[in-house]
Each structure stands twice: as structure tokens, then as C-alpha cells.
Amino acid sequence: MPVRRGHVAPQNTFLDTIIRKFEGQSRKFIIANARVENCAVIYCNDGFCELCGYSRAEVMQRPCTCDFLHGPRTQRRAAAQIAQALLGAEERKVEIAFYRKDGSCFLCLVDVVPVKNEDGAVIMFILNFEVVMEKDMVGSPAHDTNHRGPPTSWLAPGRAKTFRLKLPALLALTARESSVRSGGAGGAGAPGAVVVDVDLTPAAPSSESLALDEVTAMDNHVAGLGPAEERRALVGPGSPPRSAPGQLPSPRAHSLNPDASGSSCSLARTRSRESCASVRRASSADDIEAMRAGVLPPPPRHASTGAMHPLRSGLLNSTSDSDLVRYRTISKIPQITLNFVDLKGDPFLASPTSDREIIAPKIKERTHNVTEKVTQVLSLGADVLPEYKLQAPRIHRWTILHYSPFKAVWDWLILLLVIYTAVFTPYSAAFLLKETEEGPPATECGYACQPLAVVDLIVDIMFIVDILINFRTTYVNANEEVVSHPGRIAVHYFKGWFLIDMVAAIPFDLLI
């Protein structure tokens, strides 16, 4: 008679799926529990143990900040960024110097990925580790590398530091407007667009060049630039800015003055950032001319202004700041037409079709709590990747769950009947059967004279019903998954307890 339990259901295979997918890609990662103190490590794979030199037993239950890997060259700011990422709910990448158990130093890129439950609360953290440099290539500990984003994938490793954006290309926007319009339909740009040429040739750093990471940081200074100062900065030398009595002219307006920039070969870094931020506020060169004239017309309804409409929906549905990093990277690809469009465009503009998908598509409701890094690593669709929660398995109709209350009560009843059979069957065979043979035949009273025979008949009927119930009862397979398919249940029961239950259900007393 089957006594099969499996009270692990309803099970959740999400954690096993993450481990299996990460292991298949030869990654070095740990999984931490966000619900406990210090976000203790609950799993670390073999790749991480080989990377740091510690065994799994030495890593388990330690804080996922990996303070046991810190050393003299470990930056405090990087460690603080990892700790801050564990307090938030967004994906974050941090470069930090770690030390192995043998004392060797290596520069590592740590990717902190939160995993949320159905309520939107962070319950786990996945920390992925990628070695960037070994100890002989690690720089000085005073050099802070965590304020910069990861290198873009479309640049060669040897040319990542030679990417320079020439400031004269930004200063000569109005001069290039006529050349853009003359391109017409034969050019790649839309009317009114501004073409910015980027020099990728390796050259020595000069005062006129600005690194790509500095251009990325310009967006942080746009908020500090007032509207009046932006307007004066875009007017140009024809209309000098008016300053109040006793007030000095704005240095932001002076930063885009061609006369002032041409007199000296070098520009201050602050002026460069502010000038680029001011130019980015204009949607095209037409807006710059309109600002000089004193009238700013409404933005025209053409394809170039609607190019950012799908980007707005993608940004609203993005799951991490990696989408913004990807957008900034692609927006700086050289030799393309940049349409400086305000994100607050007309909502009635139709979304044009684009061959290049900048932001990841909208994630469906079932995966809105899973970050983009987890979705990318697992390579699963929205119909396959579940949320991290207890999910009731989908069972067929008329199927009994093996952990249901009805099955528990039924098993206790069958257990009592088995005990009765084990006690009274030998007793009936030894004593009652002998008395029946010696006594007179009682054929007239039937079952009324033999109450134990009636009980034995009921017990046999219950055993037959138990066999039928076992054909529709779920079970737990070797992978700790609840199986509810009727065919698989029948095959599993035939290979197991079916023969024993059938022999126990045969009414031998009635056959004798």
C-alpha cells in the first residue's frame, strides 16, 4: 500500500533555474538572501570558489559584500557603492579590487542584480563577478574607477581610450546646418538635424578633445543650467548677453562664444560640459537660429522629431539603469545623424518603425519583477520565466494532490484497515475457520451469522477504491517536481505499489 509523501509542494524551481543557467555559462556568482541580516550568502558556485580561493563552506553565510576579499588596494568608495546597491532595488555595476585567499590582487567587475517577489519586494541578490585585470595590471588604489561605466561593446579594446569628441564640431553647429540641408533625401539625416562627426583615429590627448566618459557625465550638469543662461549661451556672438549692473557675465554663455574659444586653444572642462549641455537642449539648428531671432517656433511634425517616441515608452518600462547606459552608448555611435529632440514631445505622434532597438522591449506582467540581467542570462521568455513566489501546480481535472487534506485522511483510514487485516486475518484463519468446520452448517442466516465476513468484505472494497484513487494521485519525481499527468501517474504506480495493492485487495476469504 503506498505511503508516498512529498510535502515540499507547491515547489518553486526558480532558484534552481537560475543556478542551472548560470552554471551553463561558466559564470562566477553568488546568491544572497536579502531578508536576513547583512544579506548572507546562501549559494556560491564553483567558479566563484576558484576565483577567490575560498571553499564553499568558508563563503556560505558570510555577508555578500565580500568584505573578506578586501585588501589594501580595495577602494572604500567601491565598497560603499556595493553596500548601497544592496540597500536599493536597481541593478548596478561596480569595479573593485579584490584579494584572493593567497593574497593576489585582481580588479573585478561586480554586477549586483536584485530579484523581487510578486509584491515588488527584493528577496534575493545575485552578484556576478568578472575579472577585468590581474594584480600586475591593477593601478594605484588612489585612482577611482567606479565613477565610470563599463566599456562599450562596439569599441575595440585597444581603442576604448582613444575615443574623442571634438569640441569644434559642437561649436560649428550653425555652420554645418547648410551642408545638412543640402544633403536632402540623399543624406542619412532628416531636415533640421545636426550631424556630429566623431574622430576615432588614435591621437595624443589634446586640450581640444573630450573623453567619452566626460560626455556621459554632461547629463548630470544640465539641471544646474538655468533657462535664461541656456538661451544666452545659444544666442551666440551676435547678441551678447546682458548683465545687470554690478553683475558679471555668465561664464556659461561665454563658453560657447566662437570668438572667445578661437582665441585660446584650450577650454576648461567645466565650460566644455556646460556648452555641450546647452546645445543638447535645442532640438535642431533651426531652433538655434530661432533663439537668435527671439522667436522659438513649435517643433515640426516630421520623422526626426518622432524618433524618440518609442524611446520614451522603453525608458518607462525599463527595469534597470543598464538600459540608460545602453541608450547613452548607442546615442554616441560615430558617423550617424543625431536628432536633438526633447523627450517631452507630442504624445499624438505616431511611433516610426526603427531597425535598431535601443531599449529592451516591454516586459510582460509575469516578468515585471525580474531584472534585465536575470532575463538576459536565463534566456527565457515571458511565458517560461515565473515570478519568485509559491505557485500552485497546474493539475488535470479529477486529480488528487498527494499533500491535500483528503489524501491525508484517506491514508490514515487505509492504515487502520491494514492494521485490522494484519490482526484479524490470522485470527480468523486459526480459530474461526476451525469452529466453522466443526459446527453445523448455517446457510440460512447468511452474513448475519458471520459479522467478521462483512467487515472483511468492506475492507476489500476499500482497498479496491484505494487502488483507483492512487491512479489519480500526484507524486514527486526525482527532481522534486509534482507530477499531475494521468499517464505518468499510471506508469509510476504500475512500477511501484500496484502489484502489492492488488494482492492485498483480493478477497481470499470469499474465494475459499
Rank of each mutant, 00 (worst) to 15 (best):
residue 2 P to L: 06
residue 3 V to I: 08
residue 4 R to Y: 12
residue 9 A to S: 11
residue 9 A to R: 14
residue 12 N to E: 10
residue 18 I to Y: 07
residue 21 K to N: 08
residue 28 K to Q: 07
residue 29 F to D: 01
residue 30 I to P: 01
residue 32 A to E: 01
residue 36 V to G: 07
residue 38 N to V: 01
residue 42 I to L: 07
residue 42 I to C: 02
residue 44 C to N: 01
residue 45 N to V: 01
residue 50 E to W: 01
residue 52 C to I: 15
residue 52 C to P: 01
residue 57 A to Y: 07
residue 64 C to P: 14
residue 64 C to Y: 05
residue 73 R to Q: 13
residue 75 Q to R: 13
residue 75 Q to P: 05
residue 76 R to G: 13
residue 91 E to R: 14
residue 92 R to C: 13
residue 94 V to I: 13
residue 97 A to E: 14
residue 97 A to M: 09
residue 97 A to T: 12
residue 99 Y to I: 01
residue 101 K to Y: 01
residue 107 L to D: 07
residue 108 C to P: 01
residue 108 C to N: 01
residue 111 D to M: 05
residue 113 V to P: 01
residue 115 V to R: 02
residue 115 V to F: 13
residue 129 F to T: 01
residue 138 V to H: 13
residue 139 G to R: 14
residue 146 N to C: 15
residue 156 A to I: 11
residue 158 G to R: 07
residue 168 P to M: 01
residue 173 L to W: 14
residue 176 R to I: 01
residue 178 S to E: 10
residue 192 G to K: 11
residue 195 V to G: 05
residue 199 D to E: 08
residue 206 S to T: 15
residue 206 S to D: 05
residue 209 S to G: 13
residue 213 D to H: 15
residue 217 A to K: 14
residue 227 P to L: 05
residue 230 E to G: 06
residue 236 G to A: 12
residue 239 S to G: 05
residue 240 P to M: 15
residue 245 P to R: 07
residue 246 G to C: 10
residue 247 Q to H: 06
residue 247 Q to A: 11
residue 251 P to M: 08
residue 254 H to V: 05
residue 258 P to Y: 09
residue 261 S to P: 13
residue 263 S to T: 06
residue 264 S to K: 08
residue 266 S to P: 05
residue 267 L to T: 12
residue 269 R to S: 11
residue 271 R to H: 15
residue 273 R to C: 07
residue 276 C to A: 03
residue 278 S to H: 15
residue 279 V to R: 07
residue 282 A to G: 10
residue 285 A to M: 15
residue 295 V to R: 09
residue 300 P to R: 08
residue 300 P to E: 13
residue 305 T to N: 05
residue 308 M to E: 14
residue 311 L to A: 12
residue 311 L to Y: 09
residue 316 L to H: 14
residue 322 S to P: 14
residue 324 L to C: 13
residue 327 Y to E: 12
residue 330 I to N: 14
residue 338 L to E: 12
residue 342 D to V: 01
residue 343 L to N: 12
residue 345 G to D: 07
residue 347 P to L: 05
residue 354 S to L: 05
residue 354 S to D: 10
residue 363 I to C: 07
residue 371 T to K: 12
residue 382 A to S: 04
